[in-house]
Amino acid sequence: MTEYKLVVVGAGGVGKSALTIQLIQNHFVDEYDPTIEDSYRKQVVIDGETCLLDILDTAGQEEYSAMRDQYMRTGEGFLCVFAINNTKSFEDIHHYREQIKRVKDSEDVPMVLVGNKCDLPSRTVDTKQAQDLARSYGIPFIETSAKTRQGVDDAFYTLVREIRKHKEKMSKDGKKKKKKSKTKCVIM
């Protein structure tokens, strides 16, 4: 069974824990209790493949930012979460993405942009803004509501699919490099 290491990042209060708990335990946590770091595991079937999701729910508070490099190193894919009623959390996505790329030393890291709290009427981040940002990053965008469960499975499952595509691409690139290195030079 394939294991996928997913990391949920975003500013404090955007609903990272609520999304994760909704996926794992099928219930909505409405009281806000700032996370330092929590880890969850769940076995699911995605596109006919049974897999184990190892999900790291991270601290959004700035005082825990020193811990970010460590979990970013171990993560295979990242859910970059903002709240649709919090423009600052949307603007912060850029910083999370840049930090992930720096730590992973790669421009090509599996990510999904997630606009959470889409059940709320007080939207300050337009869907088109988020779609445009995701398009500019070359990553999928999904709106979710941890409260109603809308888009929750889709967000995590899409990230797994992005990781699969990335692994497939990397193995193809690896095979191309191996083929090239088999060419021999004969000096007579």
Rank of each mutant, 00 (worst) to 15 (best):
E98Q: 05
L113E: 00
L79A: 03
E98T: 04
C118R: 05
G77S: 02
K88L: 06
D126G: 08
K104D: 03
E107A: 09
K104V: 12
M111W: 05
P121D: 13
H95F: 04
K117N: 14
H94W: 12
L120E: 13
S65A: 07
Y96R: 02
E91R: 04
V112A: 02
M111N: 00
R123M: 11
E63S: 08
C80E: 01
G75W: 03
Y96V: 15
K117M: 15
M111I: 11
V81D: 00
E98A: 04
S65R: 05
M72H: 07
Q70S: 11
L113S: 01
R123T: 12
N86M: 03
Q70D: 14
E63R: 05
S106R: 07
F90E: 09
I93F: 11
R68D: 15
G77A: 14
E98I: 01
G75D: 03
S122Q: 10
L79Y: 02
M111G: 01
T124P: 09
D108F: 06
P110C: 03
G115R: 03
Y71D: 15
A66W: 05
F90D: 03
N116H: 15
V112Q: 00
S89V: 07
S122T: 11
V103Q: 07
F78T: 02
D119G: 08
V109Y: 05
N116G: 08
A83M: 03
D108A: 05
F82M: 12
D126Y: 08
K101E: 08
E98F: 01
D69C: 02
Y71E: 14
D69Q: 06
L120T: 09
P121I: 08
T74A: 12
V103T: 08
R73K: 09
M67L: 06
D119L: 03
V114R: 00
V125Q: 11
Q70V: 05
T74P: 08
P121S: 12
L120G: 14
D105C: 12
E107D: 13
K117L: 15
Q99R: 07
R123V: 12
G77K: 01
K88E: 12
C118I: 10
V103Y: 13
R123G: 14
Y64A: 14
Y71N: 13
I100F: 04
R73L: 07
K117H: 15
S106D: 13
T74E: 15
M111T: 02
K88V: 07
C118K: 05
R102L: 06
G77D: 00
L113D: 00
Q70F: 05
D69R: 03
C80G: 03
R123H: 12
S65Y: 06
A66P: 11
S65V: 07
V103W: 15
T74K: 08
Y71Q: 14
V109N: 01
H95L: 05
M111Y: 02
S89A: 09
K104Q: 11
E98G: 03
P121E: 13
G75T: 12
A83Y: 01
R123I: 09
V112I: 10
N86S: 10
P110W: 00
F82I: 07
D108C: 06
F82Q: 02
R73H: 13
M67N: 14
V103E: 11
V114W: 00
V81A: 05
K88N: 07
N116I: 14
K101F: 08
I84A: 15
A66I: 08
K104T: 13
T87G: 09
M72F: 10
